[in-house]
Design a protein around this nucleic acid. Structure first.
Lengths: 208, 208
DNA sequence: GTCTATAGGTGGATAGAC
DNA sequence: GTCTATCCACCTATAGAC
């Protein structure tokens, strides 16, 4: 979006490769040399497109967020029931995991302490966007009596984002994507109105 | 425990400093030079106590787990009600956050993709210990009718560990420890039997 | 836009004196 | 146990030719 000059294809390919590297190894876990090797160019060429690693990092988050927003729009476009929207939201995370990837911003959140300020702000913005979207779905679900929860929608949204990011992280370190699916199913089941809460036991069975 | 020779005080101080560095910057975010500077010794001295960074990392996790287990034992020793145990469990995380620290193993879980195998196994072991402890508390709570949840205790435990780790990570990147407290309160409130589920709204109020 | 070459720094790690 | 000195690999980044 705000890259000045540049062969767009190359810049895009750099971003794709770097995104995958951050999602699997973290921002401090890869170097320009890694990108250069996969793209079959020299490190110097990369600096033409992204002057510094900090700048590359910022662009990485912006691109990731806009692609994420596109997926949220797609969910809204299909105009599903609120519970289905939540399931499809969780599925975005699940699909990343199937490629052994963490959420880009979840990964960066862990590295928060070492990141330059512009990246920190971009990460917060990503989570804000996620929480606002979730809060809107939750609010609608409550209004239409399809979802059930206590307190402010935004607060439930904040809990959900954290819980899904955490579930993702643990699933990755157990190398077991189903671990994420089980946690996500359980978190969402709490919000489903259909259940008789006092007799909840059969709502989330052992398997998945 | 299995350090061969060594001035124990120095080794312990190295571990303390390194623990704090990992909790704030991650395993890939600090170097022997950082420890050396804070301890006022040279990098070479550190290698006397911990031959390699991978070895240091493994010891870090072992020490962290044994201190964590000691805290869990302390909770069991006080023989509280199950819900109080869960609250005190969450409080361990909250206290770390107040010192701007992530859980050591939560941090390392994010860096999983870059860590040597012995560290990966130690991290999984830490989470297993946590989940087993939580599952036992949950099981007792259900038996004594003080807690309410659907499905297998171990599965709820796995969800809780992930959710708390994730909440911690997000709270840190928002630089707002209360964000963790709100998420934790909400997660635990779901388990409390006392509430009338259909009229749950007043159980988790806006503030904290 | 991509290259070669290189600067200037830091990474983990070792040898050997004290 | 701690030091000095050093190794070599790697890091981000720049200069300047093509």
């Amino acid at each position: 979006m705000n890259r000045p000059r540049a062969d767009k294809d190359t810049a895009q390919r750099i971003l794709e490769i770097a995104t995958q590297l951050v999602q699997t190894r973290g921002f401090n876990g890869f170097s320009y040399a890694d990108i250069a090797a996969r793209l079959q160019v020299t490190k110097a060429s990369l600096h033409y497109h992204f002057a510094s690693k900090a700048e590359l990092g910022r662009c990485l988050i912006e691109r990731y967020e806009s692609e994420f927003v596109a997926e949220l729009d797609a969910i809204d476009g299909d105009a599903n029931a609120e519970f289905d929207k939540l399931r499809r939201y969780a599925r975005i995370y699940a699909l990343a995991l199937d490629n052994s990837r963490m959420c880009l911003c979840g990964m960066l959140a862990a590295e928060h302490g070492t990141l330059p300020e512009p990246m920190r702000q971009a990460i917060q913005h990503f989570f804000d966007v996620n929480e606002r979207w979730l809060a809107r779905v939750l609010e609608q679900g409550r209004a239409r009596a399809s979802l059930r929860f206590a307190g402010a929608p935004r607060e439930v949204a904040a809990m959900l984002v954290g819980a899904l990011e955490g579930a993702m992280m643990l699933a990755r370190s157990y190398d077991d994507p189903r671990r994420f699916a089980r946690a996500a199913d359980r978190l969402l089941a709490e919000l489903e109105l259909a259940q008789t809460p006092a007799a909840a036991p059969r709502k989330v069975p052992r398997g998945r």
